[in-house]
Amino acid sequence: MLFTIFNSLLAVLLTYSMGMLYYGFYRIGNARIHRRVGPPLWQNVIDNIKLFAKREAPGHGIMFHLGPVIMTAGTITSMLFVPFLKDSAWLQGFSSYGNLILLIYLMVVGPLGNALAVGVSGVPFGVMGVTRGLTRLIGLEVPFFLSVALLMSGSGTISISEIMMAQDSFSNWNMMAHPAAFIVSLFSFVGMMGASPFDVVGAPVEVYSGPQAEFGGKYLGFLAAQRVMFSMVKLILWVDLFLGGATNVFILMAKSFALFFFYFIVGAAFPRFKTEQAVDFMLKLPLIIGIGAVLVRFWSL
């Protein structure tokens, strides 16, 4: 039991530090694209500590306090059901007790809790942001479900660990074995990570940063920390499902950074969709590829 608790704490620490490192790279990379020098690599950590060191934070009752807590709890719970490594006792969390379906459910708990908190604050910009976020979620989830369904039926299991273990060589990686599922999932991946062209919800110039409009000080600190951790959870999940998993932390970092780099390039290259355009887009090309792949799959069964 102690080992599991230690492992869970280690997972939180690892995702936080890796996430801050990646997002530090993200800011420097963006600055270089703009031909700027950019902030230091650890600027996100400094920002985060500064936010926790603010003396004040606005309050709007108990539900408002709970919003960032539910969001962070949702992230950490999701994290604990994602195995980080294969063939290892380390960094497994509670993944042996969970599966992919449970994880899909857990991943939307945080945003819904946060939506309640924003609603309580009564800030119209925040409520607009949440409405946009949940609308976008509809667009993102459908192709994601299709790709996950394809993967589960292709692997014959709903356990993430078993899906990961089955990918023992490069040709067996699910991105090679099930390319249609991988391509469809990448659309959702870019959207879930909040990159352009799907970043209308939280972009700083869009209705004043959307759902986070009313959160300042420690609340914003919590949300910033959970955002980088949640991004890492998604990166690690994609590594587990499609990139053959990782046998040690360095391979995990290499593979997850490759995915992060893809997200960074897409985000830097594309302009922003409006909310409806984002949903329309997701319900066209990715959905058609996804449904086509599902039909082919069930035809061949």
Binding site: R36, Y208, E214, G216
Partner: peptide
């Protein structure tokens, strides 16, 4: 704040709302 003078290298960046601003 943009490429020419780049305030972000000194840790100065824009905030979206007064709640988040220093």
């Amino acid at each position: 704040v943009t490429a020419r003078y780049d305030a972000e290298r000194f840790g100065v960046r824009g905030a979206a709302t007064p709640r988040q601003a220093d």
